[in-house]
Amino acid sequence: MRDSALMRRPAVASEPVRCGDLLLEAPGGSILQLLGKAGATPPSDMSLPEVAGASPGLRNAGPGQWFVVTDRELTGPEIDALAARLAPSLHVVDQSSGRFRIRVSGAPSRRMLAKGVALDLHPERFPVGTATSTLVGQIGTNLARTGQDSFELLVLRGFAQSLWDDLLLMSREFG
């Protein structure tokens, strides 16, 4: 068994989907949850050497909690090193399989998301670089604005397919 084929099988097996100007993608990578005391400050610099080169992004996930999202899948030793450096003020929990990452981009992104998101997504109210947890339709999601017209969603793995299907439905009119 030591030579068994080990395949990472993401929650949604889909190529990017284009609906007119909208693009839906599943970028993969790694997702780490950082657990601090409520009121803790975020890790000061995100040039965390352990995850440098993996395009890390830091997403607010409630008081004292963050998600670190990387485009490249981190190795176990990399996660361990990061955890060691952030301890004891922050605990690191690997959620790379527990959350599924969806990227939405294109001019109609905001209009599409407004069908499920109660937040005001006006760029002055929800500027580039902000992230928060909220409902998209009936499904809890961590939503980040990564650009004027691009967003990323982190969703519980078990709900990923449902959210993906909902987003496709919400995107239909733009295609």
């Binding site: 005391k37 004292g64 399989s97």
Partner: peptide
């Protein structure tokens, strides 16, 4: 953790979906 014993330093994360 938040309402009854906020003096305890405890952090919680749901990992139901992380593990098969």
């Amino acid at each position: 953790a938040q309402a009854l014993w906020p003096e305890l330093d405890v952090r919680l994360a749901s990992v139901t979906d992380q593990w098969a």
